[in-house]
Amino acid sequence: MVSLVIDIFLLALLVLIAVMVVRTGRLYAVIVMSGAYSLTSAAIFVNLDAVDVAFTEAAVGAGISTVLFLAAMAYIPADEKPSQNRNFLAGVICIGAGALLLLAVMDLPSLGDAMAPVHQHVAPRYLAESGSALHIPNVVTTVLASYRGFDTLGETIVVFTAGLGVLMLLAGATRTNRVKADNRKTAAKTAKPKTNKPKTAKPKSATKTARTKA
């Protein structure tokens, strides 16, 4: 019962944060709020018995993701500009789709139903075997690395590929760029002491020039 009350309260809080994110125009505030959103959802995961997921969500969503957004914000204008009003069209689409999905919810088993189809198929086998055959108490780890090891290999490769993509886009890790960077480095070596010093002020001034030029 207590867990249900916590669940209802946290989910309501989540909706509140989401609505505030939509209504705020200052992007720094939006990013910090999305960190709070991740942390709240991590609390919900703990309440729903998914400790491993909560762990990951707290570390990734509230930590790394917020830091990445903030790092990217150094190069992007800090405020959202008022734009062409598409609220009506978007509202109609979202309310329509939401109403259809709500109709579908009627058919879902209620939260925590032990007879729900999800709990009938492979999960009981995982729970039984992990203790008796593999002697590994954390079933999430056994399913992740052993029963579904092929999945996890794929996911690792996706993470790796996304990392490579970001490196190519931002750090210039392509072959043509490397030649250019080498040329630049040798050219910059003569005038190096000047460029290295004002590190803190650099990103902002650089974005300003980029913005005004365009």
Binding site: T56, V60, A123, V139, V140, V143, L144, R148, E155
Partner: peptide
């Protein structure tokens, strides 16, 4: 545990 595994990896991806 099965949805936990799927979502765990989905968060990092």
């Amino acid at each position: 545990p099965l949805p936990h595994v799927l979502i765990l990896t989905a968060i990092v991806v």
